[in-house]
Design a binder for these strands. Structure first.
Lengths: 248, 248
DNA sequence: CGTTTAATTGAAAGCAGTCAAACTATGTGG
DNA sequence: CCACATAGTTTGACTGCTTTCAATTAAACG
């Protein structure tokens, strides 16, 4: 049964930007893998290690992270189910950042060599996965802008918007808002802020009616205004089909 | 004569991390291209455009940049000769950021389709260029850490160190220090700071004997201390050979 | 329930921003 | 070679966003 294969969401993700035929999909489904469940904050990969596997996030959430010399932590990206957290290391020997589970999460560990063999044998999948890493790069760039040039209110709003849109694009969005899987400290580490300031900024957004919260759940009663405050434009997510073969 | 080919530096760069054979190099040299010289601050590519070309920086310097809604500018990366500023767009239709010349600069414009044909026909080059974009991603991640979690002194020092190391890795370093091709305002836009604060921070580094300046020229009389202040570790540049075939 | 973790709040301090002006380097034209 | 214009650098005074420190409240967990 298809839905029991851990790569279904990955396939769905790839197909949002690149056309895959049945053989492509089957090749992905036949990838060897080990399923592993990780506890919140467990390390999937540490900086300096030489990963033998690519990690596909099957369920739950994860994040990339780097530490500054003074102990400060910077979260670099948040990952949702169906994302391959580690195409980044496919051709690099040494991990340059840490990957941690955000919530309890399941990963499919695919041996790097098998993943390479897959993309070497199937140009179309090569292209699909390259596109994935290019979109990841684009998200990193927007993250730099968010951390570098937006004030705390805009930056936090932007992160919340991005998460909403990405969940939605993968068909994982709930009807109204979502359960934010991060603590305020983690939000701070993602935005280059302190948890105290995240708390205050969150409350400001709430008081301005831009978000509604109960516990970790957030929803957006005035989505349009929220987008404006967040300075959010989804172009950088490259959600449209990237390969329009006959439209030229 | 080899040195007249605009791709020699690109080849050198690729060979720092991936082995290329003579046929690979020849294939690159035979890429069709148009050479274009750009004035400082001229746009090579604008956000929202659909680039038809990949851009290889032949001489001079360039940078990527995005604008926030309030007009704030964030510089995302600095590029030195031999870098392909636009593998990023090889499989993406719409540019998600701007590319500008930093100094007067020469670019080789290579039609996207020819570049794709090249990587499709030569797995080794595909791998080399993929590795390039993965390293770019790694540099973006370090940039996020720099902007998000380092104070102005560390962050500025880090940028100066990175530039020194990258120039050196490409064999473009001069004996003592280098001519910094950026204004203080551009440095500010790269670090998420104002030009005024960059000025003060620069002076602080100078007064602490960590850098020596005359006009735009900077050198590092106490390189070790400079690295420490910058919290600089070159791992993220992945300068070592990434493909060690028989060393396993 | 008691314990631990996360969220909230207040007061004070600090790093970086803003505004404005002066200074320097570079380039242009007479 | 000098007057002038322009772009970039430097400096000072003041403001403000964010941090720090510390304490309290609420939620999650076994």
């Amino acid at each position: 049964m298809a839905s029991t294969n851990p790569f279904e969401l990955l396939i769905r993700k790839l197909m949002t930007h690149t056309h895959l035929d049945g053989a492509d999909c089957e090749a992905i489904r036949r990838l060897p893998f080990k399923l592993r469940s990780m506890e919140p904050s467990a390390y999937v990969l540490r900086e300096g290690e030489r990963p033998e596997y690519c990690f596909v996030l099957v369920s739950g959430f994860a994040y990339r992270q780097k530490l500054a010399g003074d102990g400060g932590r910077q979260i670099l990206s948040i990952h949702i189910p169906g994302e391959a957290v580690d195409f980044q290391n496919l051709y690099l020997d040494e991990a340059d950042h840490n990957i941690q589970a955000l919530t309890r999460a399941e990963f499919a560990f695919v041996p790097k060599l098998d993943m390479r063999a897959l993309v070497d044998s199937r140009p179309n999948l090569n292209r699909a996965m390259s596109t994935c890493t290019l979109i990841d790069s684009s998200i990193f760039r927007e993250w730099i802008l968010n951390v570098g040039r937006r004030d705390s209110r805009s930056a936090l709003a932007h992160l919340l918007c991005e998460f909403a849109i990405r969940l939605d694009a993968m068909g994982l969005a709930e009807q109204y808002g979502y359960e934010l899987p991060m603590t305020q400290e983690q939000l701070g580490d993602a935005l280059g802020l302190t948890s105290v300031h995240v708390n205050r900024t969150m409350k400001a957004l709430e008081q301005q009616g831009l978000i509604v919260r109960n516990n970790r759940r957030v929803s957006f009663p005035r989505w349009k205004d929220m987008r404006d405050v967040a300075d959010f434009n989804s172009r950088y997510l490259h959600l449209e089909r990237q390969d329009q073969p006959p439209t030229r």
